[in-house]
Computed example of a mutant assay.
Amino acid sequence: MLILAIWGLSVVDWAGSSWANKVASHHLLAGFWHPPAGARMPGDGLLVGNKVVLIRDKLLLPAAAVMATLGIELGFPMEIRQCSRRGDGKSTMGFSGQTRCPVLIKLVALLLSCVIASPSLADCNDRPGPGVDWSGCLKLNRQMANDDFRGANLVGSNFTKSNLSGTDFTGANLSNAILVRTKLSGANLSRADLSKAMLDRADLRGADLSSAHLSKAEFHRVDFTNAKLTGSLLEGAELGRAILVGADLSGANLQNAYLARANLSNALLKGANLRNTDLYLADLQGADLSLANGMTQDQLSKSCGDAKTKLPAGLIAPESWPCINGPGNEP
């Protein structure tokens, strides 16, 4: 089987394969097969004779090399189709015609996938380290304090209730990751991508999130006490009731972010973008907003400041702040 798989890779012929240009509509698994220099195929796949095998699911990767010799397309969910250069073989590539895939071939492909695809699951068992690929992995209640995940691929991974205190995530991709109630105090997340990640009630005290991509992430009730968020992108982020006491948000983009009832007392927001930021009953006592951009008098009048709150030029403190003794005690 291994010899057959190798043969399936070695006989790839790109000569005159203009038909392969139409494969662009597929989202292919990078790393399995790369087109040679000059080939006009913007993805990864196998072209065997006049047959094409496309891989869209990591679990089907090993079987794909074997089934390439049969001209079978492996898709997700399990779909096997006959495809020819003339386009007779219905597929999601836009070709028309009837699917000509015997049930036996489907069963063979499924069996091969189950038998020889299991090694591809080993990625989640790799040890923590720079550049590790744990995308989509489940890592609940783990003790990984002070580990090194620099440049790691952690897209869609789940670290709920894990201890990642002091861990280095510099430049890591954590987009769509789940870190609910995760301990990240003192962690280095500078330049990390946490867009659309969920971190409700996570502990990020003293963490470094400078220049991090945090747009549309969920930070409900997260503790950012004394955290560094300078230059971070928080556009559209959810920070309701978050604790940002003493946090440095200088130069951060908070446009359209939700900070209702968040605690920003003694926070630094010099140069921060506050356009359309929801600051309803947000605690701004002692906060430095002197050089913040885009803040309006209406936003200020709905927030909770005090005599120590430094305001942007042109704005004045309300005659009576809407909060009495801080947020939560409003009339």
Rank of each mutant, 00 (worst) to 15 (best):
L54R: 09
D283G: 10
S118W: 14
M67E: 06
T160H: 05
L104F: 13
G305A: 01
I178G: 04
K216E: 15
F76W: 13
C304Y: 00
A63V: 09
A152Q: 02
L61H: 07
S162E: 05
R261T: 13
I178W: 08
A260L: 09
L244K: 05
S91L: 10
A313H: 08
L59N: 11
N329E: 08
S165I: 02
P322Y: 06
D298W: 06
H27A: 14
A237Q: 01
S211R: 15
P327F: 06
M67A: 13
R81I: 15
W14Q: 03
A260G: 15
D57E: 15
F169N: 04
Y280Q: 14
S265E: 12
I178L: 10
L281Q: 14
A65H: 08
V108L: 11
L311G: 02
Q255E: 12
R205A: 15
G16V: 03
D208A: 11
S18W: 11
L233F: 12
Q143C: 01
N158A: 11
R85P: 02
K106P: 01
W134S: 04
V132Y: 00
M295I: 02
D298F: 07
L4M: 10
V245D: 08
R181Y: 06
T69H: 09
G31W: 02
F76E: 13
I6G: 08
D248V: 06
A252T: 09
S232E: 02
D168H: 05
D203K: 10
A187C: 10
V108F: 04
P62D: 01
V11A: 08
G156L: 06
S185G: 13
A117P: 04
R150F: 00
D193H: 09
P62Y: 02
